[in-house]
């Protein structure tokens, strides 16, 4: 199974975990399964079926928007990261 890395601000919506092992053959499937397990996390990531526009998702270190978006295939041992916008300063 692939690992999803959960950023600090979203960990309360993922049972406090920083990494969640999640099944799925694509980034979209993995995030859907993650959202089923953690419904309030899903709300933070998705607006309907679309990823919220201030949430970026990386497969390993690549932005999925220049890969195949949610259809990007994911292999065993790949890492999916949710990257929030950081505003402070």
């Amino acid at each position: 199974m692939a690992t999803v890395r959960i950023p600090t601000p979203l960990r309360p919506h993922a049972g406090g975990q920083d990494r969640v092992e999640t099944a799925g053959a694509t980034v979209g499937e993995i995030l859907a399964n993650l959202g089923t397990a953690f419904p309030t996390l899903r709300e933070r990531l998705f607006d309907g079926e679309e990823l919220r526009r201030f949430v970026n998702v990386y497969l390993n270190n690549e932005d999925i928007r220049y890969l195949d978006d949610l259809a990007t295939p994911v292999a065993e041992n790949d890492e999916v990261s949710i990257i929030p916008a950081v505003a402070g300063g």
Binding site: T8, R44, R53, F54, N56, P84, G88
Partner: peptide, 27 residues
């Protein structure tokens, strides 16, 4: 990189999450 800013309430603020001086200094 970030098409729109997160609306208020969707992300932590300086008040809820705090901030460490050394983190600021590194960035």
């Amino acid at each position: 990189l970030i098409e729109t800013a997160p609306p208020p309430g969707m992300t932590p603020t300086c008040e809820t999450a705090g901030v460490l001086g050394p983190a600021v200094a590194v960035i």
